[in-house]
Design a protein around this nucleic acid. Structure first.
Length: 449
RNA sequence: UCCUCGGUAGCUCAAUGGUAGAGCAUUCGACUGUUAAUCGACAGGUUGCUGGUUCGAGUCCAGCCCGAGGAGCCA
């Protein structure tokens, strides 16, 4: 007998098969049972009819609780009433482990996410997390393929680092023998060493931020992909970010149709991602925001009126806030690149433009309220300017001396960006919390399971 | 760190200061085509914790604990 997966079942119509997996749900009557059987690749309905099977098989199928591990045998039949197109006429149910107290129920009342995250080790079996995490898997593979196809060298940055890469954010401190180490908050500075060695590299790994952020966009541990390219300037960096996002979203739309349908994701905005992303200078963004502030204030929608009040709250010439990003996303209804932020609000390694007022950095803002998914730009390549910036930002010079060496030995214009994998997945799947976009989210108040 | 909101049955939520309730899930029973099945029954409680006001507190007050959303910071 063929041992097969649910995903391949349509190829076995009218054949006897064996399925190994778990009981997902059950409906039925006194003489006819409908087992919803899952094996990780999909869910299929197994029909067990009292008149067609031995008494003990029917009794077993009726008795076992949800998530009991079972082996089911039966004949695959076509059935138009099934979403899958086929179902299995069960003839035997072998129990591996019988379960009667599975703690997650299938219900229309959605428990709050915190309770489900306490059960994350089991919740991942349910349809929604299953779909989101499959999209994540596809997104990660698409990222790897994108850079591999373009001859980037995978260049892993260390996770233990001696000090802050940016000299600002809160880092996780870890004892490291006789000294103090920190968990990396970005592989970028290491990526720059790779760009000078290989031309085009990509750093891809976990990143840690000890910021006490409590929003649906923040994790303390998240995955970031960070390409870094020698001789690439701001326009080229924007081209790369745009192409990468278009490729990744395209792959998800192509390969994850079933998952996006399960999530009831309206993909119309995602389909717009093939168009060029508007590229907006910071000064222009401020003008657009001033206009949006006025327009939204007149709206009938109280949400928009509230948003209007938060637009440009930090003042002209300051960094953009979350409300500003949301408003711009709503206005353009697709990904936008905002470049040339004020130099003061950006990190020490950012290259200044010819005016000296702006940094040649770029953020990509995703629509639909997800906000920033990419941050990057051109790096300062002048030794003198970089040293001045290090002094100005109070970065301990000894901690970045190796980095400064890159400007002493064959410095060239270069740059790159970082994209947060979870935020990208959050946007593509349309999920409310970035916490759902990673198997085991780590936030300020969650270290388990 | 700050602002706002919340914590009652396994889950989602009710309950003018006056007997602690419902739906769903579990358990038991009925039903041969169910798609979040349906119908009937049983069971299920230290109302986050501590103290206070009151004849009487889930409800009012104070403190604390836990969580959520947002700000800031960021991807």
């Amino acid at each position: 007998m063929n041992s097969v997966t649910v995903s391949a079942l349509t190829q076995y119509v009218d054949q006897e098969v064996e399925l190994k997996g778990w009981l997902y749900n059950r409906r039925g009557s006194g003489k006819l049972l409908f087992l919803q059987f899952r094996d990780g690749t999909g869910v299929v309905q197994v029909v067990v009819s009292k008149k067609d099977v031995p008494e003990e098989v029917f009794e077993t199928a009726k008795r076992i609780g949800y998530e009991s591990s079972i082996i089911v045998r039966g004949k695959v039949t076509k059935d138009d009433r099934s979403a899958l197109g086929v179902e299995v006429q069960g003839s035997a149910v072998e129990v591996i482990q019988e379960v009667h107290d599975y703690p997650i129920q299938i219900t229309e009342d959605v428990p709050n996410i915190d309770k489900l995250l306490d059960l994350r080790h089991l919740w991942v079996r349910s349809k929604r997390p299953h779909a989101i995490l499959k999209v994540r898997s596809e997104v990660v593979q698409a990222i790897r393929d994108f850079y591999y196809q373009r001859d980037f060298v995978l260049y892993d940055a260390p996770i233990f680092t001696p000090a802050s890469c940016e000299g600002v954010s809160t880092l996780f401190e870890v004892p490291y023998f006789d000294e103090t180490g920190y968990l990396t908050q970005s592989g970028q500075l290491y990526g720059e060493t790779g760009a000078m060695a290989f031309g085009k590299v990509v750093v891809f790994g976990p990143t840690f931020r000890a910021e006490k952020s409590k929003t649906r966009r923040h994790l303390t541990e998240f995955w970031m992909v960070e390409p870094e390219v020698a001789f690439l300037e701001l326009d080229g960096i924007m081209d790369l970010a745009e192409q990468q996002i278009q490729y990744v979203v395209g792959r998800a739309l192509d390969k994850c149709k079933a998952e996006l349908k399960e999530l009831e994701r309206d993909t119309s905005i995602l389909e717009q991602v093939v168009k060029p992303f508007p590229r907006i200078h910071y000064e222009e963004a401020q003008k657009v925001l001033q206009q949006l502030k006025v327009d939204f204030a007149k709206s009938d929608d109280p949400e928009l009126v509230k948003l209007s009040g938060d637009i440009l709250k930090q003042g002209l010439g300051a960094d953009l806030g979350a409300a500003d990003e949301t408003a711009l996303g709503m206005h353009y209804k697709q990904c936008i690149c905002i470049h040339h932020y004020p130099r003061e609000v950006k990190a020490f390694y950012m290259k200044a433009d010819e005016t000296g007022k702006y940094a040649m950095g770029v953020d990509v803002i995703a629509p639909e309220g997800v906000g920033e998914i990419v941050g990057g730009g051109q790096r300062e390549d002048s030794l003198e300017v970089l040293e001045a910036q290090i002094k100005k930002h109070n970065v301990p010079p000894e901690s970045v001396s190796w980095y400064v060496d890159l400007r002493k030995y064959g410095s060239v214009p270069h740059g790159g960006f970082g994209m947060g994998v979870e935020r990208c997945v959050q946007w593509i799947t349309g999920c409310q919390h970035v916490r759902e976009a990673i198997p085991f989210p780590r936030t300020i108040y969650r270290l388990t399971p």
